[in-house]
């Protein structure tokens, strides 16, 4: 089956105004039905707790489509700003409501805003349009005492990390090696201002044998330095054979102190 998008939810201002009615941040069903009791139980939790939200770039792309968004930045920047402000307010309200019930260990944003070699919009445009929202959410997150403020983006993120650090983001994933992300180099460049999850080359997992041994050895200095939870740098693809995956888990277990 192949598919092709022929219409996106927002194609004109009327679509946009209609859509906003479906985003009532105070709708009680946006939190778990037993939010108070669940939050009380989670105060003494043993498991790590993340809250996930879509970032502005991700969400506007969902509304207007990728090409539509990229042209909209140029053709109608005022509407882009309006949509970002709306989403910022929506998520800010949800953060505050959630924090009344539970303080998570991490607030994690999804943006997926990079190609293999570059950011999908320039760092300058990211700074102008997106960074202020990341910062203001970060103030809420930090103000509530949430220690980890994370960001997810596939693709090459080397030119985005400085902006994330500026926004107060202190963890990112999944650090795709095939996109040219070099984790030891990132650690040298950004020091301990950024922690990472992921970073293990899925292609080396597929090759197995010496390739995966070398890959874990490549990452070992960062594992030992801290601020890094090594994991496959995206979903494990089907060309990773089960015996090679078991071998990889064993190597990873040794490198992380589990064997």
């Amino acid at each position: 089956m192949t598919r092709r998008w022929i219409k996106c939810p927002v194609e004109n201002r009327k679509d946009w105004e209609d859509l906003q009615r479906r985003y009532d941040a105070d709708d009680p069903t946006r939190l778990p039905a037993d939010a108070a009791a669940l939050g009380a139980r989670l105060a003494d939790r043993e498991g790590y707790l993340q809250l996930h939200f879509s970032g502005p770039f991700w969400q506007l792309r969902e509304w207007v489509g990728f090409e539509g968004l990229c042209t909209l930045f140029h053709d109608d920047p005022g509407l882009v700003r309006e949509m970002i402000a709306f989403w910022e307010s929506h998520i800010a309200r949800l953060l505050r409501r959630a924090f009344e019930r539970v303080i998570p260990d991490e607030v994690h944003l999804s943006e997926d805003m990079a190609y293999k070699c570059f950011s999908m919009i320039s760092p300058a445009m990211t700074r102008e349009f997106i960074l202020p929202t990341w910062k203001r959410w970060g103030e809420i997150v930090r103000g509530a005492g949430v220690p980890v403020y994370g960001m997810d983006s596939d693709g090459f993120i080397g030119e985005l990390i400085p902006l994330w650090i500026e926004a107060g983001i202190n963890m990112c994933d999944p650090i795709e090696v095939a996109a040219g992300n070099d984790l030891p180099a990132f650690r040298r460049r950004f020091g301990r201002a950024m922690a990472y999850r992921g970073g293990v080359d899925k292609r080396a997992m597929a090759r197995g044998g010496r390739a995966i041994e070398d890959e874990i050895a490549r990452l070992r200095p960062v594992i030992d330095d801290g601020g890094f939870v090594p994991s496959c740098d995206h979903g494990v693809p089907s060309d990773v054979a089960w015996p090679d995956y078991v071998r990889y888990v064993g190597l990873l277990a040794k490198a992380t102190g589990w064997l």
Binding site: R45, E46, G47, Y48, L49, D105, E106, P147, V148, N170, M171, R192, A195, R197, V200, I223, G226, G227, F228, V229, P230, S231, C232, G235, V236, P237, S238, V240, Y245, Y248, V249, L252, A253, A255, T256, G257, W258
Partner: peptide, 26 residues
């Protein structure tokens, strides 16, 4: 706890072991 271990890892402290999270298959 798993929670403390992950927090220590993310915050550059020293957990007893680095969390073992190999990945997720499609």
């Amino acid at each position: 706890t798993a929670r403390r271990r992950m927090l220590d890892a993310m915050l550059f402290r020293r957990p007893d072991r680095v969390p073992l999270q190999p990945g997720g298959g499609r």
